[in-house]
Design a protein around this nucleic acid. Structure first.
Lengths: 184, 184
DNA sequence: CCTCCACTAGAACGGTCACTCTAGAATGAC
DNA sequence: GTCATTCTAGAGTGACCGTTCTAGTGGAGG
């Protein structure tokens, strides 16, 4: 589901398509997800949300310097996007823009996922020495930059937006004061 | 059309809905847009693209200091978004994410619009003293930040993403060297 | 006047949508 | 064994989709 959502969005993804992809009949889907399509999408968003945020420490821990780490993470995302034929993107971003006004329940789920990203990302960045408020602002800026850059990159079929956005976020974080990490 | 596209996306917007909104019968739409729904959407994207980029100089010319101007522009966008019930967003962003893999013709149109934004924005920023390469990178970063922040803000119903993204882009532009404006 | 053409108007069409229904297979309790 | 329950399986349903078709209208050119 997440795969289909991120490639073609919510409205364009049919229950029949989901059933085929999951190698399950239609009836089984409605047995497990009584809320129908909406509930399946909600589950996919939650699952993707939980999985994606784990990439943040995984990618950023690779570099001791936080600024370099951020730029490298965007470059890695760019490589991934180009390598998968410009299809590999975040379903949360695609779906949120599409349903924010038309599907209140799903919008709420998307909001929860984003909030959990911000909270966990803020904690991570604070652990790397940023003040709490700075960490939160930086996390929002990072998420906005990567979601927006994904859209531009997929539209233009170019990694340039991602690289530029990565450099910008890195430079911004570089302007923030870094204290002594509470983790040592 | 642009209104409907940006609120609910491409797939969820029906021809019937367009006809009603335009107070025209279905037949008339197909008379003027022989390519059907796709062509109507393409026209809407092009029109919106041309209109939106004009906001850039309009908003940024208000402040002599470019860094302040950028932060103020994001704040203005935040106010606008909140004031219109979180519906006022860029259709290009919404639609691009949705159709980038499923509708090649529309993806091309979106790419053209984005490219024209980048070109015009680069020229503007160069006119405000940035080196060409810096101006181009900054424009990509700005677009990515605002498109991504729109998504986060609409999902969370909060202006915080927009304000944070604006501060980040402004701080980034602040790190770039400013030469003497070629326009004096 | 008639003819032509751009355009309006909406009914009609095949297809697909999300969803429901009925029927049967598998499983566990007793 | 019997029975109830859970889940599989997919045909069926009504609504709506984008598109096409036929019919009719308004006005300009001769």
């Amino acid at each position: 589901m997440a795969e289909l959502l991120r490639v073609q969005g919510y409205a364009a993804t049919g229950i029949q398509q989901l059933a085929t992809a999951a190698e399950a009949p239609t009836g089984s889907i409605y047995h497990h997800f009584k809320g129908g399509k909406r509930e399946v999408a909600a589950a996919a968003l939650r699952q993707t949300g939980a999985a994606y945020i784990q990439l943040l420490p995984m990618l950023l821990d690779r570099h001791e310097n936080l600024v370099e780490a951020i730029e490298a993470a965007f470059a890695a995302a760019a490589e991934d996007l180009a390598g998968t034929g410009w299809a590999n993107m975040c379903p949360v971003g695609t779906v949120t823009g599409e349903i924010a006004d038309a599907e209140p329940e799903l919008r709420t789920v998307a909001a929860e996922v984003i909030t959990s990203w911000v909270d966990q990302g803020t904690a991570y960045l604070a652990g790397r020495g940023l003040a709490d408020a700075d960490a939160r602002a930086a996390m929002y800026a990072l998420l906005a930059a990567i979601e927006g850059a994904f859209i531009l990159a997929r539209g233009q079929r170019s990694v340039e937006p991602l690289l530029a956005a990565g450099r910008a976020v890195a430079a911004y974080v570089g302007t923030l004061p870094i204290g002594v990490s509470p983790l040592g």
